[in-house]
Nucleic acid binder design. Sequence first.
DNA 1: AATGAATGAGGGTTCATTCAT
DNA 2: AATGAATGAACCCTCATTCAT
Lengths: 219, 219, 219, 219
Amino acid sequence: MAQSKTAKQIQDAAEALFAEQGFIETTMRQITREANVNLAAINYHFGSKQGLIQSVAEQFLKPFSDYIDRALIERMAVLEGASVQLEELLELLMRALLHVDQENNHALLMFTRLLELAYMKTQEELREFILGRYGSKLAPFIDLLRKESAMMEEDEFFWRLHFVMGSVIFTLSNFTMLAEIERKKFNSEAEIERILHRMVPVLSAGMQARGDKLYFSRI
Amino acid sequence: MAQSKTAKQIQDAAEALFAEQGFIETTMRQITREANVNLAAINYHFGSKQGLIQSVAEQFLKPFSDYIDRALIERMAVLEGASVQLEELLELLMRALLHVDQENNHALLMFTRLLELAYMKTQEELREFILGRYGSKLAPFIDLLRKESAMMEEDEFFWRLHFVMGSVIFTLSNFTMLAEIERKKFNSEAEIERILHRMVPVLSAGMQARGDKLYFSRI
Amino acid sequence: MAQSKTAKQIQDAAEALFAEQGFIETTMRQITREANVNLAAINYHFGSKQGLIQSVAEQFLKPFSDYIDRALIERMAVLEGASVQLEELLELLMRALLHVDQENNHALLMFTRLLELAYMKTQEELREFILGRYGSKLAPFIDLLRKESAMMEEDEFFWRLHFVMGSVIFTLSNFTMLAEIERKKFNSEAEIERILHRMVPVLSAGMQARGDKLYFSRI
Amino acid sequence: MAQSKTAKQIQDAAEALFAEQGFIETTMRQITREANVNLAAINYHFGSKQGLIQSVAEQFLKPFSDYIDRALIERMAVLEGASVQLEELLELLMRALLHVDQENNHALLMFTRLLELAYMKTQEELREFILGRYGSKLAPFIDLLRKESAMMEEDEFFWRLHFVMGSVIFTLSNFTMLAEIERKKFNSEAEIERILHRMVPVLSAGMQARGDKLYFSRI
DNA sequence: AATGAATGAGGGTTCATTCAT
DNA sequence: AATGAATGAACCCTCATTCAT
């Protein structure tokens, strides 16, 4: 058995709580209470809170990066050398997110929380863990994205990529909140799927926009 | 006197620390130590940590919204009924940010940290405080943005607005980190001004993109 | 007021418990329970457990080294250049111990526990704190000891000094235990003063012994 | 088979770790990790941590007391009624220590750590275990020591014996630390054998010193 | 004979807040 | 107006032991 029952319960409870409240805000006591498990069990099974976070992270990042990998290969085979379009690439990204979310309904939030965390300056360890583990696997996808974006310098692409990531992370991270606001304002129920879809043309246009007009300067 | 010397010292120290570390991560001990002030002084002058946060928030949001207000009026007067272009609007937004940052060099970070916080579900009080205070003042700006974006439903606009906000918030919030990565990767020094400028065409294109092509569905 | 009432209570309780049980074995919860004080008070007043230990250490080491200092000066004045005898020096040392023990009846045990701790390899911080603070003050005493001992190399003296220290530390450290054994065996009540006195000729003879006969070698 | 393979592995690992770090400081996790054995195995084979300590103790004390026993008998046979000199007795003690250290290179440290522990007041069980087991076996040696020391009362001898034990225990117990200090100070490498040799004349002189001059009294 | 899993008790530390002056 | 002192709650982590298999 790969994982004991207790470890599984911890992992599940942690996943839900991390997704809902964030990693730092979630305490080991909350997790073990929710999991009906002794406080020390986390340290026993995962070594530390950080270890649990990494374990939970892996649980999600692996299927995500695998999905993208696989989907990319399949799509390339069909295209026979023709290039994928940018919107299609972004669509594929969204599908990957939805796919893992289906298997594990905290996946989307976990994804964003992880990225949030990974950009905190205190979390160098996690950042390197993620990059070391998944950075290379996602490289082909990034490369394709680069090709299909507007022509630009490397550093410009670097920043645009993070603008786009910011959109996704912020939106998903605050999805519950935003969905609630929408419900109050427009009396309509937001579906995560629809929102992700809405992003595609926006992000795509952003990546393809021509840049370089300098409109303002300090003062 | 609106504010005692002690309260001023606290406010200043808090501003710097909040900007650098975030609200939750900053402790009252750090603030009072930095301010050379007694630990209890925060509670005395601001009631609670939350009260201090709101006070600091105000300190920044007021000049920001005033700047936009004023700049918009000036620009409209010149245009005499002709419409402002979207990129110009976004440029104006960026200039507002840089302007307050000049008067108070923590302003940019504070802006983003505040918005981050405002979207946390535990922070309903702050959220309502900000919306109640500044929501109406920024309304004209939002309206203009709406007009200059692609034609779309109200709810679509709502979401796109947040996609864009996400880009700005994420980028500024993680600016230190991202700048450091850029320095390592490209050996170039990021300037906040240049990065904000880089955003304009990207965000503009995003808001003007035509939407509605449904590429994917769940499963 | 140099020290608050709570800080005093903590210091006193800590002193008693440290003396009785040792530093590591004594927990902060024991101390604060005994002192009728909140657990957090130790960290408030002393920063950390280690800080409390250092504070307690100082409380004792200062009068001890001061006493030796003073007594040495007085004695030298009387002798007018004539040399002190070794036994007298050791006697002076014992008197210093008894003196501080009179003012603070945990002093003797504290002395030994501190030296025990100072020689642990994990306690480099404390070791340097003590040496930096009192090493130089005790130097004249050590120098005299050297002069009155048998002629020997520097390194030989170094080791003999520690043989002697070992006697003192071990005896005081286990005094309660040893006294109890004596009571059972000889039905006599040990007094610390008498025991210290018993040490003088023994230690003195040890320091003055002629060395250098090599009786054995590792097979 | 007296002891299973697992028990042997535990014993060996425990010995090394106890010697290096002390009994209390060494955790069961460390031991079982080092021994490549399950955590529960200690309790299974030795009942408790205390049981393991006693087992390890025996492992060492037996050859030690046997060696002294044997050497004493051999020496007496040669002397044919003539008395052994004190230095020779102490030399024999040191040789016994070095002898067991040769067969088991943690023996010296174990010896001292055990004696340290045995004098802690919480360790009555261990103390009685050791005394009951080896007290009588070492009696002849102690008797000889008594004869060759200066004439003195029983209780004086009792205390002097512990002064001497203190020297040995303290020195060996902190040998690593002291050797390091010596290396820094004199740039010379201490050898355990040489240090033990250095002790002989010092301890011998101490045991033979004439006592009884009362130099001081409590103020 | 052996072990993976689990646990209750307790470790030191940190937090925002409140009290008494 | 201001502050030193004090506190209860909560933090993560580690320990030796025991249970079920």
